[in-house]
């Protein structure tokens, strides 16, 4: 017991807001967004593509640690970018540069030190569960609930009426071919299966925007490709804006409309690479000269930054 008690005090400094009592957004604000979304959905994909930004990031910087602290760590520096509606963008950068941090700021889970983020034209001050769904880098399924219960709880969190939940859970599990595992607990599934569930949970929330933090990182090459193709097809059918973090250059080129390349920490926007190829993308895109040219260009952009990141971490 004494060891446990000391663990409490040492952990305290690290755990921010163990039981956040945030109240969410006012109802009226959510209604506004519903209106916006209806408008957006009534436009055709191409029309909305040319139009307004889904996510606007204006001068966002983020440092961890307290002001004036020696250990203060700048993670993001003056990021300015816009992500259009129905666009698939990848965030690419060396490990530890601040990609997850940027994703968390977009989703309202972290406050930027300076700057602002706009989602559907509205300033982000907290999580926006009706606009943004997350698929996290780590396994975030609740270990004490079965797969079906996990999906159910996600909808409950989002405020979906009880009657609608079973059908949506069933459909979401079917969409990723995991129906037969509905009654399994997360620890009974493989890493890849869990990640598929996490992805289907994110999609079942039916938000316009999905933020994905290396959702395929734990998967083998083959599964990644298949899921990547699925995702590309899905983008064509549903009108979603996807922000995707990856370390795989091939994955970035295969999936993205645009790729934002970041420098080593503190992350600054280094370059934007456009992939001009319609969705859904076929596997033969991967063997084209265009694909290889883009991948080599990305590698050229990243090389220096990866060296810098490695230097930082030794």
């Amino acid at each position: 017991m004494p060891t446990q008690r000391t663990a409490v005090s040492s952990q305290l400094a690290e755990v921010a807001d163990p039981w956040p009592a945030h109240g969410g957004e006012p109802e009226t604000a959510i209604l506004c967004v519903e209106e916006l979304r209806k408008n957006a959905l009534s436009n055709s994909r191409d029309a909305s593509r040319a139009g307004d930004a889904a996510i606007g990031i204006r001068g966002v910087s983020k440092s961890f640690g307290d002001d004036g602290d020696d250990g203060r760590l700048p993670a993001l520096q003056a990021i300015d970018l816009e992500i259009r509606r129905n666009e698939f963008v990848c965030l690419l950068g060396p490990s530890g540069c601040g990609k997850s941090t940027l994703l968390n700021i977009i989703g309202g889970l972290l406050k930027p030190s300076t700057g602002e983020v706009f989602v559907n034209g509205r300033r982000v001050v907290g999580p926006l569960p009706r606009d943004i769904a997350f698929v996290f880098q780590e396994d975030t399924l609740l270990p004490w609930y079965t797969i079906a219960q996990n999906m159910h709880v996600a909808l409950e969190f989002q405020g979906v009426p009880r009657e609608e939940r079973p059908e949506r859970v069933r459909a979401a599990l079917e969409a990723v071919g995991m129906s037969e595992f509905a009654r399994y607990y997360p620890h009974q599934l493989s890493v890849g299966m869990k990640q598929r569930i996490a992805m289907s949970r994110g999609l079942s929330l039916q938000t316009d925007i999905v933020l994905m933090d290396e959702p395929f990182a734990a998967l083998d090459e083959q599964t990644r490709m298949v899921l990547g193709e699925d995702l590309s097809g899905l983008l064509e059918q549903t009108h979603k804006t996807i922000v995707f973090v990856t370390h795989s250059l091939a994955e970035a080129v295969f999936l993205s409309d645009r790729i934002f390349v970041f420098t080593a920490r503190p992350a600054r926007l280094k370059s934007i690479v456009t992939v001009d190829e319609p969705h859904p993308r076929r596997p033969d895109f991967m063997t084209s000269d265009k694909f290889n040219g883009l991948r080599n260009r990305l590698y050229g952009l990243l090389r220096e930054e990866i060296r810098e990141a490695v230097r930082q971490n030794v």
């Binding site: 409490v8 163990p18 999580p127 609930y145 409950e156 969190f157």
Partner: peptide
Amino acid sequence: NTISGVIHVDGKLIAAARSMGAPPHLLFRR
């Protein structure tokens, strides 16, 4: 032990629940 138990709940699970809009009473229960 109650304090210790709550503090040691995996922060990632709390972040995920927050991102899905969990109100405090559901965050507590689930």
